[in-house]
């Protein structure tokens, strides 16, 4: 086996390293900076150059080495390279080759170009490790242009009615992607501190974002009437929100595809926007790898692997500690 599945994470015996391990290991290859994939306590880290700033921002001063997309590197007896996963800026699929056999661990990925992350590139391989966060045919995402029009339309309508729009978004990835979809001519854009901290990191690595104003205790929120506020979902409905007076709340997540979830979140609007592949995306990504063996990690693993089996793949389920059934406990650690 090129890669093995252990209780610490995905392990490569030939190179003696782990991919996205959830327990401390001597050497960790990290697909991206979300907390369920990049954890503290490892002896050495390797990630892409564009993923590194966020990982450092989250984990502090760690022994982190970087690599560029497509750069071949030898680790022990394994040949390793990183390829864009399209999930968030810097996110990677990790390709491992030993004696001509190629395996790819894809971490989290999406196939749609979000205009911010390096677009997903299919990698030919023999075995492919895929997530299945949205691995049911009910999950198909609307076009990004339609989404942008929806969000801006909601914002404009609120601004005209004298309401502040407060949109719940995950700080890393989703927030910046939404920022790029917003039409700054509609009004000022305010940010929660958690979102702005990530914005600074992303701007620092040369990715352009529209101007934002961080909400601080001194800020007179009411002076920015008709503003769009980006905040982590946990801030929605909290005391923090009271400063804005009349608001309309929105929530941006793939789970918003389901009416029941939209209604339970009790936000005024739900926008279906996800950094994970939808049903068609998962299927087309898997087809493009040309792999026969598919390992299904977090998400609708049972249903998705059974589906793949009926499609002629040798598919199996792998238990991991990556964000699993996150429908209800969506937190900053389980961005969907």
């Amino acid at each position: 086996m090129v890669l093995q599945f252990t209780d610490r994470g995905i392990y490569c015996p030939a190179g003696d390293f782990h991919i996205d391990p959830w327990k401390p290991v001597p050497r960790a290859l990290i697909t991206h900076g979300h907390a369920d994939h990049a954890r503290p306590g490892h002896g050495a880290y390797l990630a892409t150059r564009t993923a590194a700033p966020v990982i450092r921002h989250r984990l502090g001063d760690i022994p982190l080495d970087t690599i560029t997309y497509g750069e071949a590197r030898r680790i022990g007896d394994a040949q390793v390279s990183f390829h864009p996963a399209g999930h968030v800026p810097g996110s990677a699929q990790i390709r491992v080759e030993i004696g001509g056999e190629i395996w790819v661990a894809s971490g989290d990925y999406k196939t749609v170009d979000d205009g911010l992350s390096e677009p997903f590139e299919p990698v030919r391989c023999h075995a492919f490790i895929t997530e299945s966060t949205f691995g049911l045919p009910i999950y198909n995402w609307p076009d990004q242009a339609v989404l942008a029009a929806d969000i801006n339309g909601w914002w404009a309508e609120n601004a005209a009615a004298g309401r502040t729009s407060v949109l719940g978004v995950y700080s890393l990835g989703k927030a910046q992607r939404v920022l790029r979809l917003l039409d700054p001519s509609l009004g000022p854009i305010l940010t929660h501190g958690a979102v702005e901290a990530t914005n600074r990191v992303i701007r620092g690595q040369g990715l352009a974002l529209p101007d934002t104003i961080q909400v601080t205790p001194d800020l007179d929120a009411k002076a920015h009437s008709g503003a769009m506020v980006l905040a982590p979902p946990s801030a929605l409905g909290s005391a923090w929100m009271r400063r804005f007076g009349a608001v309309s709340t929105g929530f941006a997540s793939g789970w918003m595809r389901l009416r029941g979830v939209r209604r339970r979140r009790a936000a005024d609007r739900g926008f279906v926007i996800s950094d994970h592949a939808d049903w068609d995306g998962l299927n087309s990504a898997i087809r493009a790898t040309g792999a026969d063996r598919i390992f299904v990690t977090h998400g609708y693993t049972a249903q998705f692997s059974r589906w793949l089996t009926t499609q002629g793949y040798d598919a199996g389920i792998v238990e991991t500690d990556y964000g699993g059934e996150t429908l209800d406990e969506v937190t900053e650690d389980d961005p969907a």
Binding site: P137, R257, L258, R259, Q303
Partner: peptide, 21 residues
């Protein structure tokens, strides 16, 4: 396949919506 449709139904919780999706 029908079994996959039936797997979707309890996730959505509503037949009309499952079909629409």
């Amino acid at each position: 396949p029908l079994w996959l449709f039936e797997e979707c139904y309890p996730v959505v919780g509503d037949l009309s919506e499952t079909i629409a999706l």
